[in-house]
Design a protein around this nucleic acid. Structure first.
Length: 577
DNA sequence: GCCGTTTTCGGCCCGACTGTTTTCAGTCG
């Protein structure tokens, strides 16, 4: 069984236990286990086979036994029992905003409601308002929540959320009462997808800021608003939460509001060990006196920790690494010298080679690899072998025009065909400076064949880089069913680089995959996959995935100069495979 | 259910907002 499947079972069990009114901490234990399993960079099955389940944080004797049962039999008796007790539709009610385990249980136990449709009908009939703790307003909230659930679009890709947030932050920074404004939450941690936009403001006049915020043109609906916290929904249907704090409390507030929740819980535990209570307002001593932290660094320092980059704050070992003085020095966007995938009008891009070269240089790059699609990819206009040779002359011309300040490298995004071969002959590939290989079709294929197709490309000495390895498209297509562990090991063995594609809807490899690739010593490249002159901005999202995967500059090819990259590619092609 | 150079039992992060309530429960992050 896959990590995500087992994590989902434990998360579902936590929901069912909560509805049954079980001990809160027992429920949390299931949730923590689910989160930690979902975040594992290795297959749980491997850890199970090695008998090392108990090394996973949050997995003790009982849960280890449950995982063992799932791995051996494919089912879990305790889970089956819970499913027999709690109707699935009642668990689904937890998806409704403002409906939690207590209310779901109330509707189920008192009115016999066992799915969302029946709940909606009961609310319309005015049957919820008479329940204990309910009223007319709560009944309306249930209806509004069901409506919101029905039109919910899911999570938003980082790059899309980022620009929406920037617009709100710019508006906030223009307000005279605002001292400082920052993204927080998963946005600041640069998760690949974002639920709500979390924004933090420092101001001595929170009510004035809230009033102005509610009136911004981006606001479609005010969901709740108090003196320190306001939630709105934008016209795009995305929720934004604004918190306002005094400037003197900025550090604790930014730390708290950035999360993740799991990271914060660990930090608060560390604080308690030192006789301190950490909240978004301050560190409080046992005598009630407060330590104010205007900066985040002071919060971490007070707990005996170096500053931890937001991208690492997931409780995936960063606290242990920080305590041991072994935090990685993460790659930064400013260290990126080149780009390894972009397209021009020759395939499905919108700009010419020269326009793209100038845009890449304006984005701070020294070089970029031209990677128009090869011929067989039906959905785009691909380049034939002959067109590729003509493009080579164009590249040289553009390089002359750029006057030595910027360099295009001759490459291609060559298609891996279903039979594992590439759709350009070896002699054509040999004439290129860099070869990027990718799969665009048949991604729903069966695991063994698809993996074999990837491995064949990884072993091909002409192939330098595998583009967007899992093929996922956020919100549209799941990752292909691939043996990623085998792919990482083969890439490490053959020195083939794997791409972190920064295109907003790809972000592929994602953070968890990057982490495993880094552990296994795989060489990585970050690509913008730009299809027009604005596309080089995508490099920032690729860098974000690299950082979330604990990648340092040394492991990412983009930090090397063009000549070093070419030397790397030549050494690969000449090496025996 | 997990976890421990304070404990193998007794803890387990902390606070805002809303709505239903005369002091708090539920939800959310």
């Amino acid at each position: 069984m896959k990590n995500q499947e087992i994590a989902a079972i434990f998360a579902r069990m936590a929901d069912m236990l909560a509805i049954l009114g079980e001990n809160y901490h027992r429920i949390m234990a299931y949730r923590r286990a689910a989160e930690n399993i979902a975040a594992l960079s290795r297959p749980l099955e491997e850890i199970w086979q090695a008998g090392e389940l108990r090394t996973i944080p949050g997995i003790g004797e009982t849960l280890a036994a449950k995982i063992d049962e799932l791995m051996r039999t494919g089912r879990l008796e305790a889970y089956e029992k819970l499913k027999a007790q709690v109707p699935a539709g009642v668990v689904d009610m937890l998806l409704i905003p403002d409906v939690g385990p207590k209310k779901a249980a109330l509707f189920w136990q008192t009115l016999g409601i066992t799915d969302i449709e029946a709940l909606e009908q009961a609310a319309r009939d005015g049957r919820l308002r008479h329940l204990p703790g309910m009223g007319v307003k709560s009944e309306e909230k249930v209806l509004a929540g069901i409506a919101a659930l029905k039109k919910r679009t899911g999570r938003t890709p980082l790059g899309v959320a980022w620009s929406l947030a920037q617009a709100l932050l710019e508006a906030l920074r223009k307000m005279p009462e605002v001292v400082q404004a920052s993204p927080a939450g998963s946005l600041r941690r640069m998760r690949d997808t974002i639920g709500d936009l979390d924004l933090l403001v420092a101001s001595a006049e929170p009510e004035a800021v809230m009033a102005r915020f509610r009136e911004l043109p981006q606001v479609a609906e005010v969901l709740l608003s108090g003196p320190t916290k306001t939630s709105i929904r934008t016209h795009e249907g995305i929720q934004a939460d604004l918190r306002v704090v005094e400037p003197a409390r900025w550090g604790t507030a930014l730390q708290y509001f950035t999360g993740s929740q799991a990271h914060n819980i660990r930090l608060r535990g560390l604080a308690l060990e030192r006789g301190l209570s950490l909240s978004e307002y301050s560190l409080k001593r046992e005598d009630g006196s407060e330590i104010l932290c205007p900066t985040e660094e002071e919060v971490y320092a007070a707990l005996g920790l170096p500053p931890i980059p937001p991208e690492l704050r997931e409780d995936r070992g960063e606290i242990e690494a920080a305590l041991a003085g072994r935090l990685p020095i993460l790659i930064e966007r400013s260290q990126v010298r080149g780009d390894f995938q972009f397209h021009t009008v020759r395939s499905d891009g919108r700009n010419t080679l020269l326009e793209m070269a100038r845009a890449a240089q304006a984005a701070g790059l020294e070089y970029a690899v031209v990677t128009d699609h090869s011929y067989s990819l039906g959905i785009t206009r691909g380049v034939s072998a002959a067109a590729l040779r003509r493009q080579r002359a164009e590249i040289e011309e553009v390089n002359r025009l750029m006057g030595g300040t910027f360099r295009l490298l001759a490459g291609v995004e060559v298609e891996m065909r279903a039979d594992g071969t590439l759709d350009l002959p070896d002699e054509e590939l040999a004439g290129l400076e860099l070869v990027v290989a990718a799969i665009h079709s048949g991604l729903r294929g069966e695991r063994e064949r698809l993996t074999a197709r990837m491995l064949a490309a990884i072993r091909n000495p002409h192939v330098d880089i595998i583009a967007h390895p899992t093929g996922r498209l956020i919100g549209e297509r799941e990752e292909a069913d691939l043996d990623m562990e085998a792919i990482f090991r083969a890439a490490a063995e053959h020195g083939t680089a794997l791409e972190i594609n920064g295109y907003t809807h790809r972000l592929d490899l994602n953070d968890v995959h990057v982490r495993r690739a880094v552990e296994l010593g795989v060489t990585l490249v970050i690509s913008s996959d730009a299809h027009d002159v604005n596309g080089f901005a995508n490099l920032a999202w690729g860098v974000a995935m690299a950082r979330r995967g604990w990648a340092t500059a040394a492991q990412v090819l983009n930090t090397r100069r063009a000549e070093e990259v070419l030397a790397w590619a030549r050494s690969r092609t000449s090496a025996p495979s």
